[in-house]
Simulated scan of single mutants.
Amino acid sequence: MRLETMIGAPGAALRLPLGEWEAGIVTVLREAFRFHFERNEFFRAQCDANGVTPDDVATRADLPRVPLLPVSMFKRPDAHVLLTAPLNDIELEIRSTGTGGVPSVARRDTETVSRALIGILSTYRDFFALSKGAGLFLSPSTAETPEMGMVKVFNLLNGFFDDHVYVVRDYAFDPEEAIDHLNRWHGEMTRHIIGPPFLVNRLLRYLELEEQSLKLDQDSMVITLGGWKRYTGESISRDEFDGRIESYLGITADRVRDMYGMIESNMLAVECEHHRKHVPPWCYVSIRDVSDVDVELAVGATGLIAILDATNESYPGFLLSDDVGEVDESPCPCGRNGQTVTFRRRRHGAELGCCAVSIEKFIENKQIVAECAIPEAE
């Protein structure tokens, strides 16, 4: 299968027999490897040091030989050396700032942006089947945070809705406003909630404290992205989260869908109704030994998540993350094949960082300041 078909029809690509999926991903990754090998001096030097060329990648067993770029390199001031595309061809810069305050900067040229947009929109359509309704976005708008990767990914859902609203403005969130919008749409449109888990959790906590509950619609969905650990280090339990959504919003667990990705890659792994995050057909997830990242672990083993992305022409999309998890290749009841990925935690010693963490920390700090402020005399 050609890369263009994988991007434009990911639903069909994910339903191919496992053998066809494997042959297809090796082919497109070898082509991507050759593209950067021939055009990128920095990457070529890594290949020469490892003694590997595109001709050496003939089967899936050869994919671990492709040199990886640690995501920490995108935080360096000289990160432009990673680029295959000329700087003047860069159309978009996406940033992610963690609790350490050092941004990762991922630059994409026009072809890479086009592939990402088409692939993600096609994936949304396949997994969510949205074409109407109203979207309540528990996040800032792209106008307020134009370089934030998580917000960009959420914003692509707008085109599927008849109406939508963002309820985080100037890093402040008012749950009463969110509830007012949901009530305004009642009986008029199917209502969907989109945001990082911690902000959905804040809405649920407000409903619990106020002893309120809402009954959303039969086809309503809650779509999340951004990790399940707060900036304080506290984790949000997924089972508890799903249970509270059903109790306070009337949405069953199969309509709650989480996603996993990182700003350095065009990979967005989206959950099906069985809560398995499907790796898009243009990517391959390789789990690496934490003590020796050149070693690929067997399917099902826990290790560092590496992503090989065939769509990126801006820089080699062969990335070693700081995330720990597993892949599964067993058949999914939803009918999709290929890989599914499970994120467990950040590698020990890695900075806890993503867009959602930064938003939460800022909101919490603003609320503390506001609560402690001395009121002005009347």
Rank of each mutant, 00 (worst) to 15 (best):
A12R: 12
A12H: 09
A13K: 10
E20M: 09
E22T: 15
I25Y: 03
I25E: 12
R30D: 00
R30F: 01
H36S: 08
E41R: 15
E41Q: 13
Q46Y: 09
Q46M: 15
G51A: 10
T53I: 08
D55Y: 06
D55A: 14
V57G: 10
L69Y: 07
L69M: 11
L69E: 01
L83N: 14
I90C: 04
E91I: 05
G100R: 07
V105W: 02
G119R: 11
A129Y: 03
G135C: 09
L138K: 07
T142F: 04
A143M: 04
A143S: 10
M148H: 02
M150T: 05
V151D: 06
F154E: 02
D163E: 15
D163I: 03
Y166C: 10
D170T: 06
Y171M: 14
A172K: 13
E176F: 03
E177L: 14
E177G: 05
H181P: 00
E188K: 13
T190I: 11
F198P: 14
F198H: 10
L203A: 08
R205N: 15
S213C: 11
L214V: 12
Q218K: 12
Q218W: 02
D219K: 13
I223K: 08
Y231R: 08
E240M: 05
G243S: 13
G243H: 11
E246G: 05
E246L: 13
L249K: 09
M259P: 00
G261R: 13
G261S: 11
I263Q: 06
V270A: 14
C272A: 07
Y284E: 03
S286L: 13
R288I: 13
D289V: 05
V295N: 12
A306G: 13
I307T: 09
D328C: 12
D328K: 11
C332P: 00
C332F: 11
C334R: 07
G338A: 04
R346V: 00
H348V: 10
A350L: 09
C354G: 15
K361T: 00
Q367Y: 08
V369T: 13
C372Q: 12
C372P: 00
E376N: 08
A377C: 07
